[in-house]
Every structure is written in structure tokens, then in C-alpha cells.
Computed example of a mutant assay.
Amino acid sequence: MAEHLVVPRSGSAAAAGRISTWRTITTALLPRALALTVLHVLARTGLAYAVAYWTPFSVAARWLALAVVVVAAAVWGAIDGHRHRARADRSARDLPVFWLGVAFVAAGLSGLVYGVLGQVSSIRTDGNAFVFEVTTGAAWIVLVIYVPAVVGVAIERRFGS
């Protein structure tokens, strides 16, 4: 990854490839990761309020919060799978690896944001400490985003029109 941070000499083919790869990562990965981060933080915040104020519906709220993030990742993965399948040059991007990167960035950011939010606000974070949110919570978020996205990619590649 450090090779992407090196400023290459102008005119070299390898340099152009690295710059192109870096642009692809920043223009494709970051919007997905940021959108899923915001969606996950909003879902968890809504869940915290539902558990605090609508206790009889807390189980349904948990499933709803999980479903919102899972469906969003699966639909976005399917859209990427459709675009990738329609493109003539399929070697341009390995979508499972790309979505793993999206999942790691989104998980790290949402764990960080929600951990800080739990420390500085009155939102009840189920007693989870900041370290838990950034480590174990982030690992769960990686799975919640990555698995549905890759399933969406696979379904669209296999059965899409």
C-alpha cells in the first residue's frame, strides 16, 4: 500500500497505473464506505433510542436495524456486480476484494464514530466501551457489510440479465 503514496515520476507507465489505482480506490471505495458508515451509525442510534423508549419493540428494532444495513450492502453489491458484468474488461476490479476494503473502512469509521458518540453524548451504547466498538464491534460490522455485498455481487453476476 505504501507504493500508492509515493509520488511517481511523470511519464512512466507504472506511475500512471498506480495513480489510476489510487483514483479508483478513492472515487469508488470511499463513497460506499462513508454511506454505509452513516447508515450504520444512524441504524445503531435509532436502535439505542428504540431500546430506551420502546422496550416492547426492542427485538423488532434490532432486526430492523440489522436488515437496513444488510439490504443496503446487498443492493449496492448487486449494482456493482451488474456494472462489472456489463463491462467488457472484467479484470478492471476484483469486486470481493474491493468490498472487503469497503467493509473494513466502513467498520473502522462506524466503530470510531459510535464509540466517540457513546462517550460524549447521552446515547445509550449498551455499556460498550470505546475499545469494544473499535475492535469487536468493527469486526461484526465487517461481516454485516461484506457478506451481503459479496452475495449481491454473486447473485447479480450469475442470474442478472
Rank of each mutant, 00 (worst) to 15 (best):
A86C: 04
E3V: 07
G127Q: 05
V144C: 13
S121H: 09
T26N: 15
V131N: 14
R93N: 15
A15S: 02
R90P: 04
R85W: 01
V113D: 15
G108N: 12
Y49Q: 04
V51R: 00
L64C: 07
Y114S: 15
L143F: 05
L64Q: 08
W54F: 01
T37R: 12
P31E: 02
L66H: 03
A78H: 03
F104M: 11
L143K: 00
R32W: 10
S122W: 09
S110E: 03
V120T: 13
S58Q: 08
W76D: 07
Y53R: 15
T136A: 14
V153K: 05
R83W: 04
V75H: 00
H4T: 01
W22A: 02
T55S: 09
F130H: 14
E156A: 12
T55G: 02
A86H: 07
S12G: 10
V102D: 12
D94K: 09
D89N: 14
F159T: 08
R32V: 11
A52R: 13
V71D: 02
F57H: 14
H84I: 03
R44P: 03
V153C: 10
T55I: 06
R62D: 01
G137N: 12
V75Y: 06
R157L: 09
I19P: 01
Q119D: 12
H84V: 04
V68E: 07
L64D: 02
V69N: 03
A86M: 06
P8W: 04
R62W: 00
A88P: 10
L47F: 09
L66S: 11
A52Q: 13
A103K: 12
A35R: 00
V105S: 12
N128S: 10
R85Q: 04
A16F: 09
R157G: 03
G17T: 14
A73V: 01
R18D: 09
M1Q: 10
A72G: 12
W76Y: 06
S161I: 13
V38M: 00
L39N: 08
W99L: 05
G115I: 13
Y114M: 11
L143Q: 02
G77T: 07
I79V: 09
R90G: 14
A43H: 06
H40A: 14
Y53H: 11
L100E: 10
A61T: 04
E3C: 08
A2L: 13
R9I: 03
R62L: 03
R90V: 07
S121R: 10
R90E: 13
V113I: 10
G160F: 08
H4F: 03
G17W: 06
D94L: 13
V144M: 13
G11M: 01
L66P: 00
R158Q: 11
A43V: 01
T27A: 08
A28R: 05
P56M: 03
V144N: 06
L39V: 10
I79T: 04
S110T: 05
V71G: 09
L143H: 00
A154K: 13
V7P: 00
V75S: 00
E156P: 06
A129I: 04
P31Q: 02
W140A: 15
V120G: 15
L39C: 09
Y49E: 02
